[in-house]
Amino acid sequence: MDDISPLPYVEIGKLLGLLAYLEDAEGKVDIYMIPDDIEIEADELISLLRLAQELGYVEVKEGDVSITSLGKEIVFGDENKRKILFKESIKKLPIFKKIINLLVKATDNSIYKDDLLEMLQEEMTDEEAEETLKSIIELGRYAELIGYNPEDKEIYLDKLEEI
């Protein structure tokens, strides 16, 4: 696996909450105002904004954050619509592309969590690899793209026919 950058751990509920907050703020928000406004640590805010930006939900320009039309669609969509849009967005991220590719080729379309962790560790520090894996499971589960069975410790393609 190459060209993979670490993914910060992002809780899906916080990402959705951030979009709702930006939509509510009607337009641009000064990035430095956000931590106080919503009681969030700057580190975590940066992780959230980075992912939201990569997914095309927000634009960051000269210290201002604004929500895109795709971001608004997520905010106003019902739970199923949100998941469909979110699935389409994360499928485009390089790290998810690689993992889907890996799972499509794997026996039973599943791999052991520890094997995936080992692969990630070749590309990044151990700590980053663990965080990335945790995020892949959180976001992949929400999108119903990647499943994880904690009993067998296996990561698998959730709905192969829809990939």
Partner: peptide, 21 residues
């Protein structure tokens, strides 16, 4: 599960979930 947006998390244990989930 579908209604509250938990699809994909059916087999997760509470320790794996964020507060919101």
């Amino acid at each position: 599960i579908d209604m509250v947006g938990l699809e994909g998390f059916e087999e997760a244990y509470p320790r794996e979930l964020s507060g919101g989930m």
